[in-house]
Design a protein around this nucleic acid. Structure first.
Lengths: 294, 294
DNA sequence: TATTGTTTATAGACACGGTCTATATCACCT
DNA sequence: AGGTGATATAGACCGTGTCTATAAACAATA
């Protein structure tokens, strides 16, 4: 295959040629002069030609040595750049981080964390991929994102899930249903009213449906929508009682445009987790982001 | 200085990434798979990041590994080219050979050798530098030529001289001096006639002058010229008796336009030698040329 | 479900070679 | 001559790169 089977010799050659001195090359490489002398001799033997003129002032490239150097110099410069780049990646001065998650999670929860990440590591490019939980899982498996932030539970043998924080879902209504404001409703009282739910494949929707089932009730929405914003808007306009994440409507609750329906049971909190591929190493940026989110 | 202090690891990394398999990389490098596995781990540790995803089908570069690879690939390709080039130099499929010598030596003696060299090693570029012996020595010391072909003796502690062949100098005349054709002349008889010599600093001129001195005569030319061609031309036109190298006027002697003056003493042959810098390694091309000339 | 054939990872041992120290040798400059 | 730089050589030692043997994980068979 190749003539010289020890690339270390090229490094020695590079420094010897660059400094014009075996002694100085030895200093640069933290070696002794005899080691460098020996290494150069090895390289020369492997090529069957002399690479340096030796004189009392140091060494000088021969014609043939100069030809070799023209290549090796480039090569060493590339490797130096490679190492700089790797260092930058490790220090998070460069690189990229690709995150998948739902629109609403990005908007209401991840934004401050992303902001913090960005101010701390401005060299890292961020790519955000919006989608439903199944979408995000697909992105992950296709390698299009490094991590996904979704609602739990997730059971998938290929995925590693870290629970990170909890959200409390609740039913909210607008002024149209003001009569319910200070009442505590039972589930079947609630079901007298039109309920607005997020679209069928949402994790939160499934959770609440199961919870009703546990008490023997069937939760069927009057209206089904595809975005959290619409869920909030419909409730505000009095079109029904929306099931939303409380943390997402904090502004509306405080402003009084929405109020929370109190139930006689407590709905289980929905947990949010960070999802990564099992047995797949994380990039430095991804590791850092997960640290930050905790 | 650098993160990874063992360039051998990059070679292993390159093949692992290129083949997508530690096992195949091991084959390419004539190593065992555990060695490759260990090498990659070392590299990963030195960078503090994972470079490959491992799966049951082989390995695949991570984002960060791919960035490293983009540099290392270039670097390895350069080294491969370097090695190809060095091989070509050794095989004399490329490179250059710079020879210094006098015009006449090139014309009459070196030409066939140069032709042979060129047919055998067409990839090697030839550079011929014409000049007097002192010029050629200067060229050599300035590193502008690899070897010089000149008349001996040369005494210079910096030079290595290999005697290669002998030339016989002689006096020749044209038809104007036909009466001398079959005579054997003594030196003082010869001195009755106008003598044409090469310019003062020529090695041959000095040799013949010294020889005359040895017998007690002083050789002074009527005409002094700067080229062998003129020496011959002047003799042909009957302007005098020229002192020339016999081998350079073989054509004229055979054609009868010139004849050799026979002397009662035998002039010493002039020796031609190949001159190189002492203690300076020779290029493969120069070594080969010296072999050929012998 | 078991089997077989892949892959990579780990453990531990051995031997080679890279590196060292000490010294020689050479060239140049006072 | 003597001193000061350079590279070359010799020989010893220690480290580490490589090996064998084996494990573990996964995929594709039957």
């Amino acid at each position: 295959m190749s003539i010289n089977n020890n690339f270390e010799l090229y490094k020695v050659f590079y420094w010897a040629a660059k400094t014009g001195s075996l002694t100085q090359a030895a200093h640069a490489l933290y070696l002794t002069q005899p080691s460098v002398s020996h290494a150069i001799k090895q390289l020369e033997n492997s090529f069957g030609m002399t690479l340096f003129y030796r004189n009392s002032k140091g060494v000088e490239l021969t014609q043939e040595g100069a030809i070799l150097y023209s290549y090796i110099e480039q090569s060493m410069i590339l490797i130096a750049h490679a190492e700089e780049n790797m260092l930058a990646l490790r220090n998070l001065d460069s690189g990229e981080l690709r995150i998948g998650g739902s629109d609403s999670l990005f908007k209401h929860y991840l934004l401050p964390i992303l902001e913090e990440f960005r101010t701390k590591h401005s060299g890292v490019k961020l790519h955000l991929h919006h989608g439903t939980t199944p979408d995000v899982i697909t992105f992950l498996k296709e390698g299009r994102i490094d991590l996904g932030v979704v609602r739990l539970p997730i059971v998938d043998p290929q995925l590693k899930v870290r629970e990170s924080f909890q959200l409390q879902d609740c039913f909210v209504a607008g002024s149209h249903f003001a009569q319910l404001k200070d009442k505590v409703l039972t589930l079947d009282m609630l079901l007298q009213y039109p309920v607005i739910l997020f679209s069928r494949n949402s994790r939160a929707r499934m959770a609440v449906t199961e919870e009703f089932q546990r008490y023997g009730y069937t939760l069927k929405p009057e209206i089904e929508v595809g975005s959290v914003d619409l869920l909030i808007e419909f409730a505000r306009r009095g079109m029904g009682i929306s099931y939303v994440t409380r943390e997402f409507v904090l502004n509306e609750l405080e402003a009084g445009t929405l109020f929370e329906i109190q139930l006689d049971i407590s709905l289980p909190p929905s947990r949010v987790g960070i999802m990564t591929m099992l047995n797949m190493p994380l990039s430095s940026a991804a590791k850092r982001f997960i640290e930050l989110i905790r």
